[in-house]
Design a protein around this nucleic acid. Structure first.
Lengths: 101, 101, 101, 101
DNA sequence: AACGTTGAAATAGTTC
DNA sequence: GAACTATTTCAACGTT
């Protein structure tokens, strides 16, 4: 870096400072969260249980249905589903697998 | 550390070397896993889906525990409310608390 | 929840929602941080090194010096540094380690 | 799994089970590694520093030197180092950064 | 206040 | 080389 205080250095400095500002805001929000838990606790609620509730609600939003049909096929092949009639997409795979075997 | 090659240094060295041996064995197993996926792929199976199956089977083992946690959470949440009606009111409360979206 | 769980249930709901709002803002800031790193990378900077810089700037000098000395000591004990004379702070550690042995 | 998936299903099942066995062994080794760090800590060593040492020993010298130089360059550009003369490897990076700007 | 535990963030590795 | 996944690391939290 021929010019340490030059263009690239200045640019780097600005990136670093933007990041540090954002990180600081994040830290303040984290402190706010802690305050809410503390306030709730002071009013007789159990923070540990509250955290579990928050976690569960986040998990509920998770979608897992996407590749379920295809996965069911493989699970069936592994005997993880007692009775199962493979769908079309499944047949295609099985056919390919059999040909490869 | 007055004696860099002394007792403490020797002890540290042995810890480090034990760790490195274990890490190496781990790396070898990871390579074996990769080989199995590669072999399966060569026989017409989709490694990506296989990874999901492995993950699902691992999750299935923990699913029972998760449901237990869910039940405990509900029960605990219900115990947090000072005045609550034992039977029907319980369901309604839990639903409301969790639906607070 | 006008009647089930009463005041406490309503209060809990509000706490949960406040927390979730704060968590969401935190997540958005985290995304912003990632964006800045990505932009810097697009301009030729190395995000990994930038993260190191940010971490160093966050550590106060004393803490940083202590870690540096400790690391040098360990390296010396392992023969990773040809000649090395440990500083005082390091002696304290070594003393503790020897006593524990 | 007498009929679902047939040959291919049986083959898949065997692949999955091989993988799961390997993954389990891996997990056991990982637990062993944790144990060693814990034991070292009980004898007065700092696990965090030990991890740094292990990482450094794994990195080859060239890679390590490059990272060190790059970090020094960034620190210099931010005024974290009073006087600094970048090495050659650094120039190349800086050049790239300036061209990208 | 140190300890282990757990969840999130970052890094490394793999695949396409 | 870009995206995705897995692994590893780091920080926060409750606990003792």
């Amino acid at each position: 870096m021929p010019n340490v205080g030059g263009i690239a250095g200045e640019q780097l400095k600005q990136y670093i400072e933007r990041i540090e500002r954002l990180e600081q805001e994040k830290a303040e929000l984290a402190a706010d969260v802690r305050d809410v838990y503390a306030e709730a606790k002071a009013n007789g609620f159990d923070p540990k249980i509250m955290r579990q509730v928050v976690k569960l609600r986040k998990m509920d939003n998770h979608e897992r249905d996407e590749q379920d049909m295809l996965l069911d096929t493989y699970k069936a092949a592994l005997g993880m589903i007692p009775d199962f009639e493979p769908a079309d997409a499944v047949e295609a795979h099985t056919k390919a697998a059999l040909e490869a075997a």
